[in-house]
Design a protein around this nucleic acid. Structure first.
Length: 443
DNA sequence: TCTGGGGTCCTAGGACCC
DNA sequence: TCTGGGGTCCTAGGACCC
């Protein structure tokens, strides 16, 4: 993702990425008409010789064919499978309405009332009193997303899981496997997702990831959009700059102040001018406005950080209580790290006060996955940082800078081995009986 | 309006090293 | 007496995404 275009009004860097919010304006999309469905499903094992052939072709001809598949209000759609009575109604999945929850996903019926994701649930209910709020079941959504990705890997050559509800598929050079009718195949794929998973989705096909993502936003929900090569600039021109993934509220405000409204306004500027405004990120923005950008769909992805945080139902001040919360967060996050077989080097505490000011404090130590070691570090960071005048709204523990334990491991000494087994056993007990039944003591 | 939780990436500035 | 230059690592903060 590219972020940080703007910091305190100053232009900063922008990196590469692809993800974006839904655009408001819908450009004429060159959807291929009269498309026929492929006659048979593609068997990729059998197709390998073609793939090799097509890969060479793809390398020599530059034009990519990248699809972006985006599940429409995914969490709500999953809840509607479980409870069909939610169909056609304003529904939001999210946190407790009485507490401090926010909306994670809103149905299009709810969006008509102005309900948006990340909005406080209480505000959503004021905007739409008949709104049905459903508690989020993230685990379930993750499993369905996983199954869908696996299914897509059977019918598309290269699949990147961009998020729980977004996927990129690279069809470059494989047109012949789809009867030279990729546009038609987009519709087949959409139908497959509807038939086999009961999930609505939107799909766009374009020459870069960023463009496909922008395009899909113009046809949601339940749309298909194909941008034929060569039509990138004219497609983008009328869209507002805010649809570009990486241009968030701050950057949009900065650009608006400078008189930019549509992507056409960006296209009219030289790269130098945009760089003068935004620093090096201006170059990236210039490329995206002209329909260029990241076109590498990559299959594998390694996590760079693992974190847990919790906003309390009521602000807390008592130190034993706060440290108890920290202990739970540490145990949680450590279990995940051990599951992966990793060890973290950088341990970060996050502290948000009642007035929403947020600080982070980090320390880098020898690689570890050991609860007490990490807890001691977090506790000392907390004791040094906590301003006792203020009540605490949120605490978080964030681990990063991983050493792959399997990779770096020298043979374990017996003590270390014993410790590993102890920690794993504790994880199993916690998983079975709950987090509070057992804690690990010092090494 | 009153702001979740999980991430990614980027910047600046300082420490430290050669 | 006035102050190099490049590189890397670490920390804090922030923009942005779903």
């Amino acid at each position: 993702m590219h972020h940080n275009l703007v910091d305190a009004g100053r232009p900063l860097f922008l990196c590469r990425s692809a993800s974006c919010k839904a655009p408001q304006s819908v450009a004429a999309t060159a959807s291929a008409g009269g498309m026929s469905q492929p006659r048979r499903p593609v068997d990729f094992a059998a197709a390998t010789p073609y793939l090799v052939h097509d890969t060479f072709r793809a390398m020599s001809c530059i034009t990519k064919q990248i699809a972006h598949l985006d599940l429409d209000c995914f969490f709500v759609s999953v809840e509607r499978i479980k409870d069909p009575s939610l169909r056609g109604k304003p529904v939001a999945v999210g946190g407790a309405p009485g507490g401090r929850g926010v909306v994670a996903s809103a149905s299009y019926e709810a969006r008509a009332f102005g309900v948006r994701s990340a909005m406080a649930s209480s505000r959503a209910l004021r905007l739409c009193p008949q709104l049905i709020l459903v508690r989020s079941r993230h685990h379930e959504y993750g499993e369905i997303s996983e199954r869908l990705a696996t299914r897509m890997e059977e019918i598309a050559p290269v699949v990147e899981r961009a998020s729980i509800d977004e996927f990129y598929l690279d069809f470059t050079g494989c047109e012949s496997l789809y009867q030279n009718n990729l546009a038609g195949f987009m519709h087949s794929m959409q139908k497959m997702v509807a038939d086999e998973f009961s999930l609505p989705c939107s799909i766009a096909l374009a020459t870069t990831k960023t463009l496909a993502k922008i395009a899909v936003g113009t046809v949601k929900p339940n749309g298909v959009c194909v941008i034929p090569p060569g039509n990138e600039e004219s497609f983008l021109a009328p869209l507002p700059i805010g649809v570009i993934p990486g241009v968030g509220a701050k950057t949009e405000a900065l650009l608006t102040r400078r008189g930019f409204r549509t992507i056409a306004d960006l296209q009219a500027q030289s790269e130098e001018h945009l760089c003068a405004l935004l620093g090096a990120s201006g170059g990236w923005l210039h490329a995206v406005a002209h329909g260029r950008g990241s076109d590498t769909v990559s299959v594998e992805h390694t996590r760079k950080s693992i974190s847990r945080e919790e906003t309390f139902a009521k602000d807390l001040r008592a130190i034993p209580e706060l440290e108890g919360e920290l202990r739970t967060l540490v145990e949680d996050v450590c279990a995940t790290v051990r599951e992966k077989g990793w060890r973290a080097r950088t341990i970060q505490l996050k502290l948000r006060y009642a007035d929403f000011t947020t600080i982070t404090r980090a320390r880098t130590i020898d690689p570890t996955d050991d609860d007490p070691v990490i807890f001691d570090t977090v506790q000392s960071l907390f004791r040094a940082a906590y301003d006792r005048e203020q009540a605490v709204r949120l605490l978080g523990v964030h681990l990063s800078n991983f050493d792959d334990a399997a990779q770096m491991e020298l043979p374990l000494n017996p003590q270390r081995q014993h410790r590993e087994e102890l920690l794993k056993a504790v994880d199993r007990i916690r998983a079975k009986f709950g987090d509070d039944v057992i804690h690990v003591g010092g090494a």
